[in-house]
Design a protein around this nucleic acid. Structure first.
Lengths: 347, 347
DNA sequence: AGCGCTGCCGTTAGCGCTATCATCGCTCTC
DNA sequence: GAGAGCGATGATAGCGCTAACGGCAGCGCT
């Protein structure tokens, strides 16, 4: 018992089962246990069975932090979205996860609340886990954020928008062109006084790109006209806000013949409010959305909107990351998944 | 240049900036850099400034996997939800994140798709990161899952339901009592032939608890009657399914006077479909939901439903985990946040 | 003067795992 | 039948970080 002066371990251990414990139980070296876990075909069947039994009996769960440190691969994909609640982003997330989970990757998630500074802090903190890949929403980021990502040298995929100079890879569509197409469609349908209703928040880059498309279209089809715009920055992205905005916009822009919302959430809210307050759509005013939520096609009148490849963005982004993480083509790739105008009864 | 036989490092390093690099640049030991990061007040101001400058200049980002391994704390909270898309769970997630992020915790997310086996696999894989805490949805899990969690010895909080024997801590409400209260309310309102419409999937435990509450209520208020039930297991949780189920249920249970949906998604879908097909609500048939989505109060007629503390569940669960992770009270705690019946025009 | 204390910083020894090499018995070949 | 070749396993040295302790000034106190 009388052990030496510096007896006892210097540090308390995890108290959880380790490779070494399993190895002792199976009567092999810890290296062999590690091999059973990672490359079972290189272990003799007889040994493998003994080790697998020991793993089962002891309830061993590998410590991925240790594995990460030793192997320099984390099996983590960090994912940044603007907000958790959105129907569209959650479908993208589902697509991402559906492709990455089977490959053993885990999603480390964070949201920015449409704030570029929060995005940078978030990415910095996520980089601490040394993710094998990063999936971002949007193509506009602070310069310092991009520098950080470049320094980290991690595969990145940007989504949900378009740019000619992606950080690394890109899967999305052009919000600007989509909105242009919508206004173009409205013009063809005879609408002459469209009014954009959406957030002009500095951090909501997708909405701003849509506004840019709107402006370009108005300049093209109604040269010389000042584009009508109602700023919805003060309103959260809820149906309720859409209801309020219907009223606000009709008062602010009484001559508008169609309200072009930057997102289906607001448009649906307006549509529902119109139904309950007796405003006829499209008789008194036409409405359009952006995103093609399920609600938009269930509500009466159906909402004219832009359908986006939300789930596909997730799957393709995951596929691209996978290729990249496996050390595939170092050439940057960009994938434009396009969009589709969905005419319904609201116009 | 002819170096020795065992020349060169045995292993390639991360290639990223390490503590040691920063220490060399600042002319201190790596331990001092570590201290600046974790307990800056114990470092002399003069030294601290030099180190902070070195950190900034080198763009150092701490490797959290290494920190995790050395300190035996991961600053990760693993979160398990049934599905990503649901409005309610995402509000809970937002609440969780809002409380945990400022404390430096990151969310590791996974979803089960309402499958207990997937839940177990998911939790096993999440445990590999040695999370400091785990947040689960629901109170029903496989025995082996519970055993695994107990062995891991990690703080756990279960949410969104109620049980007398939680794994560890609990934040939720009783789905069973909530549905009982709903049927009780309907009975008082004069409805005598309620019909439950919802998923009976083995993995959707919340829905099953609601069904149990429904059955108990029918037995209490209409003794001897066989409770009317329409199984929606075949349908995904979408508005579209609700629309189809309105038709199915009215055909299968023509004498029902109120359709009691297990969730607002389906109820809203039915309500919208009723509007477009000329079925009068509540004239021809009354409808109720469960969850109080935003849509439920915006649609006409408004949907009678049960309001749940979705965001609060997240915040309280986070608070409980925080206390637990700081080594607080080891006594198990359970928090019942209740529910509220929201009568609207659909009944 | 000598003692103990405190504040600051460095040294040492791991955390649990994997990469890389070394080793050991085999079989195969000429 | 000796060396080459190979498959299976073990030994060793880290990955980047932190906990625990050691050491050393500078200070106040008796």
């Amino acid at each position: 018992m009388g052990s030496g002066p510096a007896a006892g371990p210097r540090r308390a251990s995890t108290r959880s089962v380790t490779l070494r414990d399993v190895a002792a139980r199976a009567g092999v070296s810890s290296q062999t246990v590690s091999r059973v876990l990672r490359i079972p075909e290189e272990v003799a069947p007889h040994t493998r069975e003994r080790v697998e039994a020991a793993i089962r009996e002891s309830g061993y769960v590998p410590n991925l932090a240790a594995r990460n440190l030793a192997s320099n691969r984390s099996k983590i994909v960090a994912t940044v979205i603007p907000a958790l609640g959105s129907e569209l982003f959650s479908e993208t997330l589902t697509g991402l996860s559906a492709v990455l989970s089977p490959e053993g990757y885990q999603l480390l998630l964070g949201y920015t609340d449409y704030d570029d500074e929060r995005e940078e802090d978030l990415i910095r903190s996520l980089l601490g886990r040394r993710p094998d890949g990063i999936c971002l929403t949007g193509t506009v980021h602070r310069e310092s954020t991009v520098a950080m990502l470049r320094t980290a040298g991690v595969p990145v995929v940007e989504t949900w928008d378009w740019t000619d100079s992606p950080v690394d890879t890109l899967v999305g569509f052009s919000n600007e062109r989509a909105m242009y197409a919508m206004v173009s469609f409205l013009h063809e349908s005879g609408y002459r006084e469209p009014c954009f209703v959406g957030s002009l928040l500095a951090g909501d880059h997708r909405s701003l790109r849509r506004l840019a498309g709107f402006r370009r279209a108005v300049n093209a089809f109604r040269p010389g006209r000042e584009p009508r715009v109602v700023d919805a920055s003060e309103y959260p992205l809820t149906l309720e806000s859409g209801a309020l905005l219907l009223d606000t916009a009709r008062r602010a822009q009484p001559e508008a013949d169609v309200l072009v919302f930057s997102t289906d959430v607001l448009a649906c809210g307006a549509l529902l409010a119109a139904g309950s307050t007796g405003v006829r759509v499209p008789g008194d005013i036409a409405l359009t959305g952006f995103g093609d939520f399920e609600l938009s096609r269930m509500v009466r009148p159906g909402l004219t909107t832009v359908s986006l490849p939300n789930a596909r963005i997730g799957r393709e982004a995951a596929a691209l990351l996978l290729r990249r993480m496996r050390g595939g083509s170092s050439a940057a790739s960009a994938l434009d998944l396009g969009f589709e105008i969905r005419p319904r009864e609201s116009t």
